[in-house]
Nucleic acid binder design. Structure first.
Lengths: 293, 293
DNA sequence: CGATCTTACGGGATTCGTAAACATA
DNA sequence: TATGTTTACGAATCCCGTAAGATCG
């Protein structure tokens, strides 16, 4: 018969107390049960671990060495199980996220603060990169969870939307349009326009919107970062249209944000991941936090 | 329920093959048995180790970490059990001996060579010291087994004699007594005598022998080491009486050894140890080798 | 005689294997 | 439909606890 963890645990206690009687009390079991457990362990070990001279159990030299190994082994065992249990209880682990800048700047801080408050032992690794790289990071396993607009090509990933975003117009507070309640894309076409660089998803969406209302924008400048665009607008270079996700940030630049329609461009914002079953406990918890709001 | 080694072993095989069917064949068990084993392990771990999407079992992130720990754990486990089994099979271990010089020089080499031939993996540690220190070494655990004449005070140790030693007379080949078949202690009293230092057991025994035949020796020199005594005799300084154990060595010095009687002084040579049960497998084997001859 | 370990044996829990149901490509 | 996993259930095994026996101080 093969040895078991239980036998090892019994062995350590017996070796320490040098008595089956004491050990049995400590282990909440009966003396005879221990007796056979030790006997079976000795059979598995290939020889006597104790010398039974008289009524005291004294470790043999082999037993002494085995005791050292057994203690070490049990420690590793308990530690390993504990570590995994802690991961499932969210008392340990990592949360690897890849997030588009718009979300990273405006939503993520609040959500992550909330998550951290609930699970302070989870180490958060946040990768704030453009949409295409979010997809890539999730595919390549650098991030378990991505947050972005719905990509055109999911690339084998799952996408769970949890928010709808619409484009808003952004302009300096003193701009001529700033007094309106809302604006249309055709209204924007008559003003110098600052946009994202060609090739970005946001740029494609604004281009499409202008097309749909039969106008073309007066591009004066383009930039990669939303914060740069915000500052350009602030400086009076032109106006822009950005996802409403960025509203908080834009308002911090003292810019006016107005609803934008005709067409109303909406985008799904959601979580990207390989598959639900392969998410870690921490990633699942964060996904749940995302989708319950 | 608590996890078991068996479950851990099953987990590793399943994780590697990502299939219960394959793993069950490899483990010589049935699929359903594995299924419940994995389920029970997951219960002990506190969450899912595999994601069961479709019919392939893919490790979850927690499962991946657990796999690393499990492999390490099983390796340590197997290694520990192997190490102990090897000790019992005498394929590994130490033989710590404390031996009096007379035995170390004359008997031990042959015995140890024989032991080493049978058990080449056993590391032999030989401490060749005087009788009193042999007892001390065994008592203090530096040596498991001592070999010496029977000490006056066993000091709580067991003594198992395996040989009787008698004193012999030693002299140069050209000495006047060298032509005899045997000599008596009273014959020695008429010649200059070289003896062990006062305080040694051998000295006490020779003193007693001279007393018993009503003579007193003509001490000319005393020394600590038998080899020194041998060389002194060789140089013609005098004759001596030594344990027959040393006969081989004395003959190598070209000395004549003769039986010595009236009285015939005999001493038990034996093994000293704390208790039979506390001997290691290697020490037991050597003790058996000693006593079977 | 008291304390302790060992052996014997009956009851209970665990585990296993067969068979059937279920799920998926 | 074929392959593979899960569930259900009867059977075997293993383990434990009580009781009796053995041993030593």
């Amino acid at each position: 018969m093969s040895a078991t963890i239980k036998q090892l645990r019994a062995f350590v206690v017996v070796a320490r107390s040098r008595s089956l009687a004491q050990a049995s009390a400590q282990l909440h079991t009966s003396q005879p049960a221990l007796s056979v457990a030790i006997r079976n362990l000795e059979e598995a070990a290939g020889g006597p671990l104790f010398s039974r001279d008289g009524r005291q159990l004294v470790l043999t030299p082999e037993g002494r060495e085995f005791l050292l190994r057994a203690e070490q082994l049990l420690h590793s065992w308990d530690q390993s199980l504990d570590a995994i249990q802690q991961r499932f209880r969210l008392e340990r682990g990592q949360l690897q996220l890849a997030v588009i800048p718009a979300f990273a700047l405006n939503r993520a801080p609040i959500l992550l603060a909330e998550f951290h408050l609930e699970h302070p032992q989870i180490n958060i690794v946040l990768e704030d990169v453009v949409m295409e790289r979010v997809v890539q990071s999730v595919q390549e396993g650098r991030a378990e969870l991505g947050i972005s607009f719905r990509p055109d090509d999911l690339g084998g990933l799952e996408f769970v939307p949890f928010e709808r975003d619409r484009f808003i117009a952004v302009m300096p507070a003193e701009h001529i349009l700033a007094g309106k309640k809302a604006v249309r894309w055709r209204d924007l076409a008559t003003h110098p326009f600052i946009s994202m660089n060609r090739g970005s998803a946001v740029r494609r969406w604004t281009d499409t919107a202008f097309e749909q209302c039969g106008q073309s924008a007066q591009y004066v400048c383009e930039a990669n970062q939303l914060s740069t665009i915000g500052q350009l607008v602030r400086a009076g270079l032109g106006i822009s249209a950005v996802p409403s996700l960025c509203m908080v940030q834009m308002r911090e630049y003292n810019l006016t944000c107005l609803p934008l329609s005709a067409p109303t461009v909406t985008q799904e914002v959601g979580a990207l991941f390989k598959s639900r079953g392969n998410l870690s406990a921490s990633a699942s918890a964060f996904l749940e936090l995302l989708t319950r709001s």
